[in-house]
Structures are given as structure tokens and as C-alpha cells.
Amino acid sequence: MQINVNGIDTRYILSNEGGGPWLTFIHQLGGDLSIWDQLAGYFRDDFTVLRYDVRGHGQTAASDRQFSVADLSQDLRALLDALGVQKTHIVGMSMGGMIAQQFALDDPARIETLTLTDTHAASPADGRAVWEQRAAKARDEGVAALAQATIERWLTAGFRDAHPEVVEQIREVFENTSSEGYAQACFALRDFDVRSRLKEIALPTLAVAGRHDAGTPPAATQEIANAIRDAQFELLDAAHLAPIEQSQRFTALLESFLQKRV
């Protein structure tokens, strides 16, 4: 389904076989809503599952101007408003986790629980140049030029060897991402920093990291959990896309976490 959100033509999918509370999934940089296919299929019997493509990704239009993570948070608010959603559980991975953190600060009353995976609260000082380099390469050579290195960061060699079909689907989505949308998102993530405000978040929070995540070290996600009162931190045997690489374990963790609060 398509809907206009803050002037951006936005794709979303609802899965609600059994109705129930809202559960919103937000994908990573260079991804789209399909990354959550398996989880949406699992939770749709008990929740109204919402997935959407972040602006400049998947089938959501790119922006005509540079945007911030705060703008992406406002996109989420406008989408929820358009769909009549009062409150939702939120699961965000990587870039999606940053959007989720920002939304938790902007609109905490709209959130039931917060699940943050493989994400950080700010780019480290030495990481700012990396975002700029990726943006420049995407614009100059196309996103496909970044695909191989990205896949190697996202998934361990063992998983890539064992599940080539999953890797190929993730690669295809990445390579079809708008180069301009990707570049603009890189600058948004470069400038993201909510470290000083994390203590304001007073929501039930689950933070999950991949033990082998080199791009977003587990310590970065654990720092978020440490800053949010009573947050639960879990470490999985995975790289950056822990909910995908360790899907069964992540599903079990998320299900247990949600059941305590539904």
C-alpha cells in the first residue's frame, strides 16, 4: 500500500490476521520492509504488524532535500496518524533503531515498548568520515559499489555460506536502493546524537546486539541499554543483522519481552 507521508510517497504493509496491539518494524540503511518478512509472518496472529519503507528506500520516494533522523521520526508519526494508530510497540534495527530512539524522545506516549537492535545513539567522532565516504561513493558509483563490503559487515561468513538465498535477497534490495536516498540517509546518521537524552526514555526497552558486529560494536548498543532505566540487553551470535542471522533466538526474545507487557 502507498500513502503520502510528509509529502513523501511511502510504502507500507499491514499484517493482522488476528488483530491485536500494533507492532511496528523499522529497517536498516540500504534495506526495506522485506527484511522483516519472517518476523511479520510470525507475529501477525497476535499483533497488527506494520512495516514500511523509510524515505529514499524500497518503494518510498527519495526526498528533494537533505533530511535528519528527526525528520524520519516525524515521518513515522505522520504514518501512524494516517493509519489511526494511537500506540505501538516498536522494533528498530540499525538505522531503524536510531529512528526508534528519536521517536521515543519525540513521542513517548505513542510507544508501548521499544526494541533496539544493532544500533547506536551517535556516530563516533572517527566514524563521521566513513558516512561521508559512503555517501560520496553511492552518488559517484551507485549503491551497488558498496554492496559486497556491506554484506560482509552485515552477516558472518558462516551464515552467508549456509544461506545464499537470504544473502541474495538482501543484496538485491540493497543494490536497488536509491543512491540519493542512501546518501542523504548517511548524512542523517552521521549527524545523529541522542546520547545526552537517553536517560529521558522511560519505556520498557529491549536492546539486542550481534557479538560479531564490527560496524556497530555490541558495546554501542549496550551503552544505550545502560542509559535507559531497567533496559534488558541481549547478545546474539551474529554480525550486524542479528534479528536475521539469529532469527529464532531473536523471535523468542522479542516474544517473551512483548508477552510481559501485552
Rank of each mutant, 00 (worst) to 15 (best):
E172L: 09
D191Q: 10
A145K: 03
A129W: 03
L79N: 13
H89C: 15
I99L: 01
L80D: 09
V130N: 02
T117D: 12
I111C: 03
A136Y: 00
V194W: 05
T177I: 05
V194I: 14
A207T: 12
P124V: 12
L79K: 14
H212I: 00
A100K: 06
T119D: 12
V173W: 06
Y182V: 03
A162N: 11
R197H: 11
G142S: 08
I201W: 12
V194F: 08
K137W: 00
Q184C: 00
R160M: 07
V166T: 09
K87P: 02
V143I: 02
V91S: 11
T119Q: 09
R211C: 04
L203V: 09
T88S: 15
F103C: 08
M95R: 06
E141I: 03
E180G: 02
T156W: 10
D140V: 07
R190I: 00
E141M: 10
E172R: 12
P108L: 10
I99K: 04
D106K: 06
A100W: 08
D213R: 07
D191R: 09
A122Y: 07
L114A: 14
G158R: 14
H212K: 09
G215W: 11
A185H: 03
D107G: 00
P218K: 09
D126G: 01
T216I: 15
L80F: 00
S178V: 02
H163L: 01
A136G: 01
S179K: 08
E223R: 06
E200N: 14
L114Y: 05
E172S: 14
S179P: 10
E141G: 03
E132R: 04
M95Y: 01
V166I: 11
E200K: 10
K87V: 10
Q101N: 12
Q148P: 00
V173D: 01
L114E: 08
A162Q: 12
Q102C: 03
G97C: 07
V85L: 05
A183N: 04
H212Y: 13
A185E: 00
L116D: 14
V91H: 06
E152R: 15
G181K: 13
L155R: 00
L116K: 04
A144L: 05
A100S: 14
T205R: 14
L203A: 05
V167W: 02
Q169I: 06
F159M: 01
M98Y: 00
R195Q: 15
A144K: 04
I151G: 03
A125C: 01
G84Y: 07
E175Q: 15
W131Q: 00
P124D: 10
A214D: 05
R195H: 05
A136W: 00
T119V: 02
H120G: 13
S196M: 07
V194N: 10
P108I: 15
H120V: 01
V130A: 09
A135F: 12
L189F: 02
F187W: 11
L206T: 08
H212W: 15
A129D: 15
Q133N: 06
E165D: 14
Y182R: 12
S179E: 03
V208N: 11
L79F: 15
L198F: 06
I111K: 01
E112V: 11
L105G: 10
V208D: 03
Q101D: 06
V173F: 03
I99W: 01
E172I: 02
F192A: 11
G97T: 08
A135N: 07
K87T: 13
L146H: 07
P108S: 12
N176L: 02
A129Q: 13
